[in-house]
């Protein structure tokens, strides 16, 4: 035994242990389970997207698809386009947004800035919760009962937009409410201390601070309602012509075109269904991208 080996030997046993085999096994098992759950969630989404793109993408590459309607074409005839349905989807979605967004933002402002904890605010929150659980077919039938049966007005794209409003308001109220809540009270107090009235503080300080998130929420909500099918089935008739008037006559939309053409069972009809599906996904993607672009432009910067 030499002095050198004495120095090489540790003075005491190490205080830390290795990971036990049991824990190592549990860790690996959990990793595998989480990975599998992720794949199980992702697989149907990828599958759906690939199927739709494979079957439908080839139809949307022609200019006619985006510029022409199906007017004058028989169910067996290829050709034409879905411009009439695109314009219908956009009109219904945007009319809905124009009505729903101001109402929803004002409700959220009331809940966060004025009502806080009051009985009315609790009732409103409860109603919004219920509304967000209402199936779209119920919203559609409600508007039918009100608009067509009670008021005696014709079925129209505007009636569709009204049903979509019922579906959109709770979504936008919820996101706006959450975003207004995370605006720090210090900013409100800073504005009050400058002698800024409450309403102006909300309009000029609180909402701009939360704007980027609100815009994202709105664009997601618009994308969602544009894919709704029940209201267009109940509240407006299909029409292969271009109709730009939301108050008058039948108007096509992409979901309506798909349900309509699905019944034709011809090769041309099938092509239109898959093409319309791709088109709808593309439009919704564009709306989401627009939303995140606007939200990036309005987001808070520190540099």
């Amino acid at each position: 035994m030499t002095a050198a080996t004495d120095l090489d030997r540790p003075a005491s046993m190490p205080a830390f242990q290795e990971i036990s085999p049991g824990r190592r096994f549990k860790n690996q098992l959990a990793t595998v389970l989480v990975g599998l759950a992720f794949l199980a969630a992702l697989a149907p989404l990828v599958w759906l997207l690939v199927t739709v793109l494979v079957k439908g993408l080839k139809y949307v590459f022609s200019l006619d698809w985006w510029q022409k309607s199906l007017a004058g074409l028989t169910p067996r005839q290829f050709g034409g386009g879905v411009y009439h349905a695109i314009i219908g989807t956009l009109i219904e979605g945007l009319v809905c947004a124009v009505i729903a967004v101001p109402i929803a933002i004002m409700v959220a402002v009331y809940l966060v800035e004025y009502g806080k904890g009051s009985r009315l605010a609790r009732a409103v929150t409860f109603t919004v919760d219920i509304l967000s659980g209402v199936p779209s077919i119920v919203a559609a039938l409600f508007v039918y009962a009100l608009w067509v049966t009670t008021f005696g007005l014709p079925r129209s794209a505007f009636a569709v937009a009204l049903a979509l409003v019922l579906l959109m308001i709770p979504v936008v109220v919820r996101t706006t409410e959450e975003l207004l809540k995370i605006v720090p009270d210090e900013l409100r107090e800073a504005a009050y201390a400058l002698g800024v009235p409450k309403w102006k503080t909300i309009v000029k300080i609180v909402i701009p601070t939360a704007l980027s998130g609100i815009v994202t929420g709105i664009s997601l909500a618009i994308a969602r309602v544009m894919g709704e099918t029940a209201p267009v089935l109940v509240l407006v008739g299909y029409n292969p012509f271009i109709n730009n008037d939301p108050f008058e006559g039948n108007m096509a939309s992409l979901p309506l075109l798909m349900t309509n053409e699905r019944l034709t069972t011809t090769a041309a009809g099938e092509a239109r269904v898959w093409g319309a599906a791709v088109t709808l996904i593309l439009i919704i993607t564009v709306f989401n991208l627009l939303g995140s672009l606007i939200s990036r432009l309005t987001s808070l910067k520190t540099k």
């Binding site: 720090p184 210090e186 900013l187 107090e189 800073a190 504005a191 201390a193 300080i205 701009p208 601070t209 704007l211 808070l300």
Partner: peptide
């Protein structure tokens, strides 16, 4: 009034 934590308007 000036507050405990600096609170410039972030927008």
């Amino acid at each position: 009034m000036v507050f405990q934590r600096p609170n410039p308007f972030p927008t």
